[in-house]
């Protein structure tokens, strides 16, 4: 019920002006007013809790330890990544995941080191949101989740599925070790935030509309992850090449005249 009210309340109708209407559909953010309020809430939370904690984390712990923690967090994500490699039919990706796990277990101090990366098998995260995208599920409208940040229905489903199928999480809940799950999630958040302090500060300072920038970045980063960062050369920034303008049309036109 509450969800329905929120949905209705947040729904902004499409504007009448054609340019505005196009922009409205492109933004694909029918809950924008609500999303913006949640974003403000998240920013506040970040300012008073997450950012200070992440800053201390970055400044107090030596980088070797921080890298070790990050490596280990990536390492225990292996089952989820492998499952998604396979669900996406990405056999080569699955091989890398297994090889990384074996290598880092044997000569990586049980996952705290990442010698596999140095050998060329870089960490590449996979999640069920990406798998759904590979299966051609649409992303749905943009969502700003409290605490968790930018998302969309497809990625929310992905988040839940990854959580449910994760053997580490299953083990933790079966053995009354929920603390492990909480601290892992928390640590992951702190680790991520601690690596983006400068980037996000710069971004907030330089942008005219921080919310819109984050929305745009989230979508582009997700698309890039879904494509595994590949086939960049086949994708052009659309209108930069398609939208004709004077200096571009000039070439062929000059030839026609001749």
């Amino acid at each position: 019920m509450l969800a329905a009210v929120l949905l209705l309340g947040g729904c902004a109708g499409a504007p009448a002006d054609p340019a505005d209407r196009e922009a409205f559909y492109e933004a694909n953010d029918s809950l924008e007013p609500l999303n913006r309020s949640i974003f403000e809430f998240n920013l506040g939370l970040d300012r008073i809790v997450l950012k200070p904690v992440a800053t201390v984390y970055r400044d107090v712990l030596p980088s070797t330890l921080r890298n070790g923690i990050r490596n280990f967090l990536n390492y225990i994500r292996t089952p989820v990544i492998l499952a998604n490699n396979l669900l996406q039919g990405d056999w080569a990706g699955a091989q890398v995941t297994v090889a990384r796990f074996a290598t880092n277990t044997l000569i990586g101090f049980g996952g705290f080191g990442d010698p596999a990366s140095d050998m060329g098998a870089k960490f590449r995260d996979e999640d069920f949101g990406q798998t759904l995208a590979v299966w051609n599920a649409g992303e749905g409208p943009f969502l700003m989740l409290p605490v968790f940040g930018p998302s969309n229905p497809r990625d929310v489903v992905g988040l839940v599925v990854d959580f449910v199928i994760d053997p580490v999480g299953i083990w933790a809940s079966n053995t009354d070790n929920e603390g492990v799950t909480y601290s892992r999630t928390l640590l992951r958040g702190i680790d991520k935030r601690s690596r983006n302090i400068k980037t996000l500060d710069d971004l907030e300072k330089s942008s005219l509309d921080f919310y819109a920038t984050i929305r745009s970045l989230y979508r582009q980063i997700r698309e890039d992850s879904i494509r595994n960062g590949e086939s960049q050369d086949t994708i052009l920034s659309p209108s930069l090449s398609l939208e004709d303008d004077d200096d571009i049309v000039l070439g062929p036109r000059a030839e026609l005249i001749r």
Binding site: A19, F24, A27, L208, D209, Q220, Q232, S237
Partner: peptide, 28 residues
């Protein structure tokens, strides 16, 4: 150069999304 993409993120597209949002937020 007409665009730079860093880790798959296009600077031009990001800027366009932002400008569009500013205009839309102020009723076009």
């Amino acid at each position: 150069i007409v665009d730079i993409r860093i880790e798959g993120v296009s600077m031009s597209i990001t800027q366009r999304d932002e400008f569009t949002a500013v205009i839309r937020k102020n009723n076009g």
